[in-house]
């Protein structure tokens, strides 16, 4: 009996080990692919310039998914955290004269920490709130941050900042994307992750088994804000200019669309949707006016497909293909 158990353990360990090797190989191959795409002749200049924005969108979507998909609370102020990170990093590199990579690294960490701090500060007062109210407060905070940035002198007011060194390249973005995905994955599969998923499923039940709902909520908010800040740092060092109007309510919604399209509670989905929604608008330049319309329809259709009434009808009718049945469902357990 015991032997069997230990054999099972060994098998499991082996499996995990194999998985890790595959992951490492995958990351290295991914990097080679990205550098080929960025340096080779496969892509036109227009598409090469999309590599960094796609990475930024992946970081934003994965981090927003932590709050929306795993914690189950709608955050409409993600662009606000991103702007805090962007301005922090830009002001740091503009005022320091350190060697490039070192300066950028410190700026990224600083951007993440300050945004995370704001995420925590916002998390504390909204602990008592849930659902609709919480969503509105995050929206309000996003707008407050934007109008403060708009009125301060050191952030350049409405004109914003310019001549920011353009440090962001595909290597930085790739490394940070991988780090974000790995850290988020580990977070949601850890004890903490199980706790926040239990809050999503039923917060009263979670509270009765001793999960400190408010602590986990603030923690998730702070982590999501941290990554949004990192994405902001990359963003500000990509084009070299920053304006407060880049981080309005629409930007937050854009990230939300990515999360919803990729599937709430699915990190893999967020990554795919982020790449798709960065490339599509460029590839379909001719129909650019329809982009907003497309976003709106994506949001509505995805939610309607999840509605209990419609699902009941679909499940009664067995003729429908299986993938439609699983469409838009919050994934249970998996990532």
């Amino acid at each position: 009996m015991e032997k069997k158990a230990s054999n099972n353990m060994n098998l499991k360990n082996n499996k995990n080990f194999n998985k890790k090797i595959i992951a490492v190989v995958g990351i290295v191959v991914g990097y080679i692919l990205i550098s080929l795409l960025a340096n080779g002749d496969l892509l036109s200049r227009q598409f090469k310039s999309l590599i960094v924005p796609a990475g930024i969108n992946i970081i934003l979507a994965v981090s927003l998914n932590l709050t929306v998909g795993f914690l189950g609370e709608l955050s409409l102020g993600h662009a606000g955290f991103m702007s805090i990170g962007a301005y922090t990093a830009a002001l740091f590199t503009l005022n320091m004269n350190l060697p490039g990579p070192l300066e950028f690294m410190i700026a990224i960490v600083l951007a993440g920490l300050i945004a995370g701090l704001f995420g925590y500060l916002i998390g504390v007062p909204v602990l008592r709130l849930r659902g609709d109210y919480l969503a509105i407060v995050t929206l309000a905070f996003g707008e407050i941050i934007r109008s403060l940035i708009n009125s301060f002198k050191f952030t350049g007011g409405a004109i914003g900042l310019s001549k920011i060194p353009r440090y962001s390249n595909y290597t930085w973005v790739y490394v940070l994307v991988i780090l974000t995905i790995l850290l988020s994955y580990n977070f949601v599969t850890s004890r903490y992750g199980r706790a926040i998923k239990s809050i999503r499923e039923n917060y009263i039940a979670a509270e009765t088994i001793g999960i400190k709902v408010s602590r986990y909520k603030t923690l998730t908010f702070a982590i999501a804000a941290f990554f949004a800040g990192v994405a902001g740092a990359l963003y500000s060092h990509n084009f070299g200019i920053l304006r407060p109007s880049d981080f309005d309510y629409n930007k937050s919604i854009e990230i939300l669309v990515i999360v919803v399209l990729g599937g709430m509670g699915s990190i893999r989905g967020s990554v795919i949707a982020a790449i798709l929604l960065t490339i599509l608008p460029e590839a379909l330049r001719a129909v650019n006016e329809f982009r907003m319309l497309l976003y709106a329809i994506v949001l509505i259709i995805m939610m309607l497909l999840r509605s209990p009434d419609l699902r009941a009808k679909i499940e009664e009718n067995e003729k429908l293909p299986k993938f439609i049945k699983n469409f838009g469902k919050i994934k249970e357990g998996g990532i």
Binding site: V68, I297, M303, L304, R306
Partner: peptide, 27 residues
């Protein structure tokens, strides 16, 4: 159709509706 759905789904639909109206008038 979403009356029995969780509030998150309704909220996202409402945001989508708001975007839809704006996008249509923009077009």
């Amino acid at each position: 159709p979403l009356r029995k759905a969780p509030s998150l789904a309704v909220l996202i639909t409402a945001i989508g509706m708001s975007f839809l109206l704006q996008a249509l008038s923009l077009l």
